[in-house]
């Protein structure tokens, strides 16, 4: 910035701030949007593995991804058949 622009109060260059913010948000959104896509596959694979050991109803195996603060928690919930 020249002394002239200091006197006349030129605007601050803000493009570098914009770029940094975009780098973060785009990386984050790419990761989170591509994330949950694998859940149906994971669920199907889990059903296949677990039913080798005992009969399960596919609907009784639930998988989900949850945000807790800075962490992502993968939750797998399996309801065992009754009478065991």
């Amino acid at each position: 910035m020249s002394w002239l622009s200091l006197i006349f109060g030129e605007k601050k260059p803000t493009a570098s701030v914009a770029k940094e913010r975009l780098q973060l948000i785009i990386a984050h959104e790419r990761a989170s949007l591509s994330g949950p896509d694998f859940l149906p596959d994971l669920q199907r694979d889990l059903v296949a593995v677990i039913s080798k050991y005992f009969p399960v109803n596919p609907d009784d195996i639930k998988v989900g991804l949850e945000k807790q603060g800075n962490y992502e928690v993968l939750e797998v919930n399996i309801v065992l058949p009754e009478g065991r």
């Binding site: 605007k11 260059p13 803000t14 493009a15 914009a18 770029k19 975009l22 780098q23 785009i26």
Partner: peptide, 16 residues
């Protein structure tokens, strides 16, 4: 405006 740092440059956008 890109030169003066007020606006993203086309190379910034391409990098992103």
């Amino acid at each position: 405006r890109a030169h003066e740092g007020e606006m993203l440059t086309y190379t910034d956008i391409q990098e992103l």
